[in-house]
Write a protein that binds this DNA or RNA. Structure first.
Lengths: 209, 209, 209, 209
DNA sequence: GATGAATGAGGGTTCATTCAT
DNA sequence: TATGAATGAACCCTCATTCAT
């Protein structure tokens, strides 16, 4: 009881804490996206999120830690999205997989366009990004193994890396004027499809079962 | 002879100036690449190039001007390389063109690994980059029109953008351990080849002659 | 009561802010006076006022803004003093007006010795100074019109400018050793008196009523 | 003979040196006038005078020394002009002396408008200016003693200082639009005349002979 | 715990002065 | 001796971070 009540007493605080953190991360995401890591200022992030600088530093003890948190969130979404796609992948044609991959990447971007800037730009934190990248690669490789089971491990890893890169191009497409953009998107989808299809025929040779 | 000697009288200065500029651009390239535009400091660039800050500012009157110079050099190389490739493209199979494109991109990167960071990075100078990118796209589109004359203008432009993006992946490959790297490179070459080949069959439809 | 206490809650901060600003303006006044605008450094002003550079910039976001504030304060005092003198001027003999003008100028200087350096000094902000000077001239002309109503507008304006300049000489007097200084002051007062008296006889001619 | 010839051998150099110095001082005067002491740069002065920085520093080993030389030149002119006026003063009415004094001050300004800025503005070199000012005061006092021989020494010195200050006002007049300017000048001349005339009647009392 | 004023190291840039040529 | 490129201390200003309230 006392436990419960004390927990209850704390709950609002925690909830408030969560709201604060969410507000800060939202503001951070926006401002990092707008200006890049270096040009973003903690003061502005604090202001936009309606937080005092001191409070901001209670939740994120440094600018880098805020960027890290944002990155982590991005990684979470990316990995979750990839895993979820992996579960559906078995039932898909390569064609629709290609589309799904592009959509996945676009969704990622629109949800967390900020993080990309961070992932690309920061000098420090190389290792964190490497780890995240590794996880992404594994997620992608898992999908490939599911839809193209005949591939060697090495081929699978290489394809994962290449696909990840190609998909990044979808973002570029989204930045263009709608007309040109949708053509670009179609092209990217087509490349992905071609790549997967080619891999399938390669696979045939390996897996004559 | 007297000409030579009199020319020599100022040569050392000029030569030293060129050396200085080269050293500064090298250091700038490195540090911009390592840290990005904002986080790079003129002081560090000066130090790494063995120059006093004041001297650095004699050659490049602002941080931005140094970045611009680096970008220009990169653009020059990129555009020249692309143009040169364009001249050879007519005589190539799509296969060898794919290889040549990848090689071109790699050469670009190794010569000017720096500029990428700048081209990607945030801030002012958006327009300069846009212009450069436009030039690059045109160069690529020109090649495509040469080897795939049946393509529509729009398809050509879209392919140019997508190819440019895919080729950027070659850089990633170069950053890997040799073993994995050469596999990755091979994959990218393969994707490019597939993409070109697919475009050629599309083209057949358009150009039934 | 509660009002008082709640007001008091922020009072210390505000009071400290005011003290800070006052200390900064004092230091700025001193150092601008000692070295002139360009040679004065924000670092030294910060140091002399016991403030960190960053804090200084919180209150005055640029060197120019500090100079402006100083100028404004000076202008305020000058204009107020002149206006106040103008109200008393009607009841004064020209003799006591001469003394009052000199005293006014001296008071101005001792309160704000700083601003003179700024008003005189070079650079941007020419217009602000021109505006201020214009206001001063008008204030002085108003006094003259009151005590010498027969003067033409043009004569009045000219006299105002000349008087303002002569009075500036009082400052010079204040900078001398007391003995020589009081003689100088007496001379200046005398010149002013002479000038006013001469204007009055001129005026007689214009206003034979 | 050998002396003569060796002197002759050196003469061209000396002459060239003098030309250089003159060019530098001219450029220095202009640029100090245009921008003030601090904002003027040795590089620009060198460039405008067609001199290499190194050479400039051979003649004037520091920025301050150049300013000093300019000041000295100004002092020379001022003192010479005053002395010359002193010689004519005996034969003049107070009226024409007033005019002559104003003209003298204006001439000084137009010949060396630069130096005023230097005399007023610089923090260092207080002593040099004091010495110059002292010489000026003596020159003025000498004139006064000549035209108003009955004055006490103290009165004379005080008047000299006040007159010098009033005359400075003539510069202000010269800066105005012609119309207003000539009115102002007339006023200043009038004040000077009044001041001198009043002193003469004072003097009468002292010197009833 | 929350607040936001205060801090001061560090960034880009300038310029008086020096010194290799 | 003349030159002008090189030097580096110092300037104005910013902002991540701390701490008194």
């Amino acid at each position: 009881m006392s436990t419960t009540s004390s927990a209850g007493a704390r709950e609002p605080k925690r909830r408030r804490g969560h709201l604060r953190v969410a507000a800060i991360m939202k503001a951070g995401a926006e401002i990092f996206t707008e200006k890049g890591y270096d040009a973003a200022t903690m003061t502005e992030i604090a202001a936009r999120s309606g937080t005092a600088t001191g409070s901001l530093y209670r939740f994120f003890p440094s600018k880098e830690s805020l960027a890290d948190a944002l990155l982590l969130e991005f990684a979470q979404q990316a990995l979750d999205g990839l895993a979820e796609l992996g579960e559906r992948a078995g039932d898909m044609t390569l064609d629709s997989l290609a589309g799904a991959l592009v959509d996945f990447r676009l969704a990622l971007q629109s949800q967390s366009s900020f993080a990309v800037a961070l992932v690309e730009s920061r000098g420090a934190g190389e290792d964190k990004r490497a780890k995240f990248r590794q996880a992404l690669l594994e997620g992608m490789a898992r999908i490939l193994r599911k839809v193209l089971p005949g591939l060697t491990q090495a081929k699978c890893d290489a394809m994962a890396a290449v696909l990840l890169h190609i998909l990044k191009g979808a973002v570029m497409a989204a930045g263009e004027k709608p007309a040109a953009g949708s053509i670009l998107l179609a092209e990217i989808r087509e490349v992905v499809r071609l790549y997967l299809a080619a891999a399938r025929s390669t696979e045939r040779g390996n897996l004559p079962s």
